[in-house]
């Protein structure tokens, strides 16, 4: 899962640093991801994992770090999102 998340981030997050150098808990917005880029990340994650983020998960915090994205995806896959 983490490899897919990082692949999506590499393609869409427009980070100012290499995604491989970003720690699991590092703030992706601090690393250069704009609000608009986070929309692309959200849509690309939906494609990659065949899920749809519900409105209540569309908070800045959901896409703030690799760890937070992983948690959100796990919640959606477990049906608790």
């Amino acid at each position: 899962m983490d490899d897919q998340i990082r692949h999506v981030l590499a393609e869409h997050a427009r980070l100012a640093v290499d995604v491989g150098d970003v720690g699991d808990d590092a703030d992706l917005y601090q690393a250069g991801m704009t609000s608009h880029a986070s929309v692309n990340v959200m849509l690309a994650l939906e494609d990659a994992f065949d899920i749809e983020f519900p409105e209540h998960m569309l908070r800045k915090r959901t896409f703030e770090s690799v760890a937070n994205i992983r948690t959100a995806l796990q919640e959606l896959r477990n049906g608790s999102g």
Partner: peptide, 24 residues
């Protein structure tokens, strides 16, 4: 205030189409 790069919007429409437009 906020600022958005127009080429980014063009690229998103090309990549995600109506899913992008309908979501926003």
């Amino acid at each position: 205030t906020d600022i958005t790069a127009i080429p980014d919007v063009i690229a998103s429409i090309e990549r995600f189409g109506d899913r992008y437009l309908d979501r926003l």
